[in-house]
Simulated assay, not measured.
Amino acid sequence: MDFVQSLDPSKLVLAETILSFALSAFTAPPYNLPVFLFGTYAQENTEAVHSLQTFTGLLGASTLFDLVWMTRHEQNGFVRLLTIVILILKIPTFFAFGAALRQRGTHFGGLGGSDISGPTVWSMPGGFTSGGREGYQTVDEERPNPPSRPPAAGPPPPPDHKRPDQGSYQQV
């Protein structure tokens, strides 16, 4: 574990970004460069914990995608070697970013439990939340009795189809 903590995530993601950029002119996984560019942003932005969690998840998923991608696409020797180097570098980068998440006081969703009751990104429309919103009523609140209406006078009389001046439809 000391080995992982001694790794510098910024240097790892920078090296992988440079390698992915160099491979972008050849037949190589097209998703690696955007993932590593996002990782550069997530690593440098100290307030973006959710971005760091997202990048760590994308990095783990892209490792599996690399294995599938390499079995389905042909590459020449040097490009394949660099793709394998990126794949191998993703493993310590994943663990280094996991350690960086722990240092920032959070964790990756599946690596140490998840907080389902944590902050939400959205709220349900109509005020169906526990705190309620302005102008909306929550589910738990008591509803006041609706104002009483006078009873209806009964069904309306049937329309007289013999008069053409009544309504816009005429009987043919």
Rank of each mutant, 00 (worst) to 15 (best):
E142H: 15
T27I: 02
I86P: 05
A42D: 10
L7V: 00
N145S: 11
L19W: 07
N145Q: 14
P155Y: 08
N45T: 05
A99S: 13
V35Y: 04
A152N: 14
Q171G: 06
F65P: 08
G105I: 07
T120E: 14
F3W: 14
G127D: 02
T40N: 13
V79W: 03
G167W: 05
I88R: 11
S10G: 08
V13T: 08
V139A: 14
N76H: 11
R133Y: 14
R149I: 15
S117N: 12
G167P: 03
P164A: 01
L89S: 13
Y169Q: 12
G77K: 15
A153C: 06
L58A: 09
A28E: 01
A99L: 05
E134R: 12
S117K: 12
Q171L: 12
D66C: 12
L89N: 14
V172W: 11
V49H: 09
F36I: 01
L14Y: 06
V79A: 11
F3T: 13
L52I: 07
S6V: 09
F97I: 04
L87V: 04
A96V: 03
V35K: 00
P30N: 02
T129S: 08
T56F: 01
A28G: 03
Q170C: 07
A99K: 03
P125E: 01
V79S: 11
F78A: 14
M124T: 15
P146A: 13
T138G: 10
P164E: 00
V13P: 10
G167M: 03
S62D: 13
G135Y: 07
T27E: 00
L19M: 12
T120M: 14
L7R: 02
D165W: 00
L89E: 08
G118D: 09
N76S: 10
P30T: 00
L81H: 03
V4E: 03
